[in-house]
Computed example of a mutant assay.
Amino acid sequence: MSVLAACSDGGEAEGRPSPTQASPATSASGSGSGSGRPSASPSATGGATAPLVPALDEAKQPKNAAEARASLGRIIADQDVFGPDVTRRVPFESDSRLWPVLGQDCAWQTSGLPADVLATSTRHFQIAPKEGQGRLKLDVTVTVHRNREESGWETARAMEEVLRCPDQRLRANEEVKGLWGGALYLGEQMNGWTEDSFNEVGKYVGEEGGGPYHYIWNQAQFGPVTVAVTGKGAAGFTTETINSLVVQGTSRMMLNAKQEFGKAAD
């Protein structure tokens, strides 16, 4: 079934940070191991499973962290996915040993990798500021879990976080407000491309001033993998432009994940 998490703030917000965007952790605990969540199935209305999602090849699933890191490197996007205006930010990659955790105070912190995560990586991109435009920021993340159930629980926790904290502090000078989110399993409504799809939208207030601006965070799942792209708006960029870039990145990485772990067509 689909799930919608809404808030009464009336605004939009940014979303979960990459590990380098979160504050240092005050606790060493990460999110728990995910298990027991059913795999995606056709919608309750009788829609057939979409052919754009291949069957998972269990034999291709990584058995350890080294295999997961190798697969991750073949899935994660680089700047060429987004077009010629997008360049790497500095730092370009987050510390892969860290995991973002949303505290009880709705502020993001970092911790060590939870037990259900074999490998994760986040890259940072931008459209550099120029006359009439601010700095548009894009972050892409790929996480490889031990199995499909654990990657599914990552999405479930994301939905719970929006309900609990519609306003979130990314770090001292960055925050998102009025977050709301929606999730769709494969076969529900327009989701025919991923086992589970989740979006957050809201308003982003960044370190470079101005705003609030449009924020969107899009996550998709295939087998043991989740891929996500965050778009942090800036002056001079339309909502449509930001959303389009986020969809480009998510779609490419999801295609890569299917090629990495899906069964070959007969």
Rank of each mutant, 00 (worst) to 15 (best):
S39D: 09
A44P: 07
G47K: 12
L52Y: 05
L52P: 06
P54Y: 13
D57Y: 06
Q61M: 09
K63L: 09
A65E: 06
A65V: 10
A66Y: 08
S71T: 08
S71Y: 05
G73P: 01
D78M: 05
D78T: 10
Q79P: 05
D80L: 08
V81I: 04
G83V: 02
G83E: 05
T87I: 11
S94N: 04
S96T: 07
S96R: 07
L98A: 01
L102Y: 00
Q104G: 15
A107G: 15
W108Y: 06
S111P: 01
S111D: 06
G112D: 08
P114Q: 07
D116K: 06
S121G: 09
R123S: 03
H124Q: 10
Q126E: 15
I127P: 05
E131A: 15
E131Q: 13
E131N: 11
Q133W: 11
G134P: 00
G134V: 02
K137T: 09
K137S: 10
K137R: 12
L138H: 01
D139H: 08
V140P: 00
T143C: 09
N147K: 11
N147L: 06
N147V: 08
R148C: 10
E150K: 12
E150M: 14
G152F: 00
W153K: 10
W153Q: 14
E154I: 14
T155Q: 13
A156H: 10
E161R: 15
V162C: 07
V162W: 02
L163H: 08
L163M: 11
